Simulated assay, not measured.
Amino acid sequence: MDDHSAALKTISAEELARWYELHDDLTIIDVRSPAEFETMHIHGSYNVPLPLLTEHTADLADRLGHRAVLVCQTGNRAIQAQQRLAGIGVQTATVLTGGVPAFEAAGGQVVHGTARWSIERQVRFTAGLIVLASLLLAELLWPGARFVAYAISAGLVVAALTDSCLMGQVLSKMPWNKVKASPTAHSVISSIPVAPQQL
């Protein structure tokens, strides 16, 4: 087991729903894209997209208390955020297993906005569509199109091995994933209250 796995701290959706009702010092950080956050998020959570958190980890760390929870769509990006924070010595951040949908299913309070697919779902759809179209094209018109399917498959393998996704980054910049005002490091971090132990 590597250091990242050993340091992994998680919380179930049911337990977070209890924390939400009981603890005033709870800070929930949603590391999804602004568009995903706008679609549905936990009431009272703060949107700090993973790329922004990665660039400003130390600034965010100064705002986190001993009851901080990182959330995303499924838990994968939240784990990356936890590892990033652990890299600078923050051991108090916990990952919500199952992401925001699990919290809603557990009866947690969420805010719904503009309906759109999550980035992860868009990646699965786009990759599948490109592979299917290239194989059909290779079968019917142009045999060389099968190499597109190979390239997409290889890209998905690399994405899994490196725990990053170029296609997801590209899709997040598409017009349907834009929001009126994307968060900036200053606007997000200054909106998070300083944890009581830091006062």
Rank of each mutant, 00 (worst) to 15 (best):
Q80I: 12
F103P: 00
W142S: 13
H41W: 00
H56A: 10
L60D: 04
V100L: 04
S5W: 06
T184G: 14
M167A: 15
K9I: 07
P193S: 09
T39E: 11
R146M: 15
T57Y: 04
A181V: 13
K9V: 13
V90G: 02
R18M: 13
P193F: 02
A138F: 02
W176C: 12
Y20I: 11
L132H: 04
A154G: 15
S191E: 10
G144M: 13
A133M: 11
A13T: 02
S182I: 07
T126E: 05
P49W: 00
T114D: 11
L96G: 01
K180F: 08
M1T: 12
L171H: 06
R67P: 01
V194H: 08
V157L: 15
T54H: 12
T54G: 11
D2R: 12
E120W: 02
M174I: 05
D24C: 10
A138E: 07
D24P: 13
P183H: 03
W19K: 07
V188Q: 05
T97E: 12
G75L: 07
V69W: 01
L64F: 08
N47W: 00
Y150K: 06
D163V: 09
S134V: 03
A160N: 14
Y150T: 10
D3W: 06
W142D: 09
A17T: 15
G98W: 01
A159M: 03
V158N: 09
V100F: 04
A68P: 00
L132F: 11
S134N: 07
H4C: 08
V31C: 02
A6L: 12
S172D: 11
I88W: 03
S187P: 02
S33D: 13
S134I: 06
A149K: 06
E104I: 10
G113E: 07
T57G: 11
V71L: 05
D24S: 15
D30P: 02
L8F: 12
A7R: 08
L135N: 11
L171M: 06
A6E: 13
E104D: 15
A81I: 04
R116P: 03
S134E: 04
A102S: 07
K178F: 05
P51Y: 10
S12Q: 06
L136C: 13
F147D: 10
H43C: 14
L60G: 02
S164H: 12
P34Y: 01
L85E: 01
A145T: 08
M174F: 12
E14R: 09
L156A: 08
A61H: 05
G65Q: 09
R67D: 13
N47M: 02
R116C: 08
